[in-house]
Design a protein around this nucleic acid. Structure first.
Lengths: 236, 236
DNA sequence: CCTGTAAGTAACTCGTCAGTTACTTCCTGA
DNA sequence: TCAGGAAGTAACTGACGAGTTACTTACAGG
């Protein structure tokens, strides 16, 4: 009697099926990853980041996220509980990636003026290269930061940039290169704001001024302006 | 036979029903306004502005808007065609109201430095007093300015503030009070950005810094900072 | 004064979408 | 070696919400 007639045929059969068990299992895992919670979770998160950034919290569709990630919709609920839970996870993951990329900021000079200029330009470039972050943050603020508020991960990110700004302000003031009495938090908000606003509102600004804010020339000009603005203000 | 049993009872009967026709019609119009296209349109627009500002384009519900306005949902489609059409009308109406309120900006001095300080403070106060504008603009940018783009009304609003900034920059540079070579559009974007960002992102900023950005003291401090920042930069 | 059109109403339709169910397949550790 | 739980699938459900229909009521011009 041929029992194989009663056995469901695996959807994951590969060319390696006939080889030795251990080797084939390993090969399969490496190549197709039949069961890989880490990978599934990560691919859902990645798909969700794109969908939420593109269409917002209510605009994004769980079916689309599932399809895009290659996983099943059930898995979203398995790993993240709800659509809101998924959105929160996306925010946390994105915040965590910022933290990582802050290592990218290597101030090449001890001089406070040069270093501050690099910091301002870095922050401009950062928003330029991470449009999805700008969108997600906008979306979150439209929802009164409900997800960030209930997230320990996101709240714990206390912006090391503020520390850095604070230190530069002190050194610059001591050396007579910067004015005194500048609140680092206010300055941080201004540095972020002049770049963030340019990107977050680029569509309406483009429509009003009838120029393409994303053209290379426009970007170069804006980058120069934000650096000049902050350094000009900081002169004693 | 009593025919009144077959006649639908008017929902608009008032205490004045028994008085003379002409007089009662006038009284009714004044008091209850049975048929008033202008008023209906306006009340839908007003309700929609609040709902869209509070919940965003997809978050807002046409049923809620209808209920809130006192009109019927059918009337939304009668006057505005679609939910998107209504959103566009809300944007146009809001832009139009800005234009009107720009008359509020009465620069009390001919001195470019003083006048520029007033302009920056005015722009801060304006965002502070019109949170619904900040929300609607955010929402619109999240949708790539699709509604503004297809609206002649909104596009025509070419920001007279830029003209004003331009004029102040010229006078200030001529008198030696301002630096030269400042692009008025860049400066306009920066002036708007440092205030707008503070309000649009106040929820996440509050969560991160654990302070209430809307407390009177915080607002006063921020207002002072944005003025100092711009005037500090503009020094020659 | 009466008729055509605009203003207004309530109840519906019909697609969509978050979340669930009922099931199968795989893997681990006792 | 097998039991039980975790990973995964597909089809379903039930609510909700944008837009429509079929109707009634008001009013202005001939």
């Amino acid at each position: 009697m041929d029992l194989s007639a009663n056995l469901p045929i695996s959807k994951y059969v590969t060319a390696a099926t006939d080889t030795k068990t251990a080797a084939s299992a390993q090969a399969k895992a490496a190549e197709r990853a039949t069961r890989d919670p880490e990978r599934t979770r990560a691919s859902i998160l990645s798909a969700a980041t794109q969908e939420f950034a593109a269409k917002g919290l209510e605009g994004a569709r769980t079916d689309d996220i599932a399809r895009r990630s290659g996983a099943n919709k059930r898995m979203i609920y398995h790993y993240f509980g709800s659509k809101d839970g998924l959105f929160q996870a996306v925010l946390e993951d994105t915040y965590a990636r910022i933290r990582g990329s802050e290592a990218d900021l290597q101030l090449t000079s001890r001089d406070p003026v040069v270093a501050m200029g690099q910091l301002v330009a870095f922050s401009f470039d950062w928003f330029l290269r991470h449009p999805e972050f700008v969108k997600l943050l906008n979306e979150e603020n439209l929802h009164s930061a409900a997800h960030v508020r209930s997230s320990n991960v996101a709240r714990s990110l206390n912006m090391p940039l503020v520390e850095l700004i604070s230190e530069l302000l002190e050194r610059g003031a001591a050396s007579g290169q910067f004015r005194t009495g500048v609140d680092p938090v206010q300055l941080y908000i201004s540095i972020a704001g002049i770049s963030y606003f340019y990107f977050s509102n680029r569509h309406t600004l483009s429509a009003i001024f009838n120029r393409d804010l994303e053209a290379p020339g426009a970007l170069r000009q804006r980058r120069q302006h934000v650096v000049d603005l902050i350094l000009g203000y900081l002169r004693p």
